[in-house]
């Protein structure tokens, strides 16, 4: 069995996280924001598996299953909120959903 170095997946996870973060910060559409969050969650999942591989510990894979579950639940809630927001604001622009700001700021 080919012994894989843990470096490459860790770097990949970091890249995925940064891609997701940039998407989160740069995109205004809430659909893309949700997708960016998914990417970031997958990055962490990948990092768990990599870490499990590095230390030969199965707990990393258990954590990954947790993360998948979490992402699914979060996505369901996120999509509901997104639909409510679209009904309310008739747009999917995240910057328009700023009604909870301090009035004077």
């Amino acid at each position: 069995m080919v012994s894989l170095s843990w470096h490459a997946p860790a770097v990949l996870a970091a890249m995925l996280l940064i891609i997701g973060l940039i998407g989160l910060l740069a995109r205004r559409s809430l659909i893309f924001v949700l997708m960016s969050i998914e990417i970031m969650l997958n990055a962490t999942g990948l990092l768990f598996i990599t870490a499990g591989m590095r230390w030969g510990n199965p707990q990393g894979q258990i954590m990954f299953i947790f993360v998948i579950n979490l992402a699914g639940a979060e996505l369901a809630l996120g999509l509901i909120l997104l639909l409510r927001l679209r009904n309310l604001l008739t747009t999917l622009d995240g910057d328009a959903a700023n009604r909870l700001r301090d009035v004077e700021a």
Partner: peptide, 16 residues
């Protein structure tokens, strides 16, 4: 209170 601007993306940046 000046940090409370209601901008989701800004919050995320600070969170990060």
């Amino acid at each position: 209170r000046r940090s409370q601007i209601g901008q989701l993306r800004r919050y995320a940046a600070w969170l990060m």
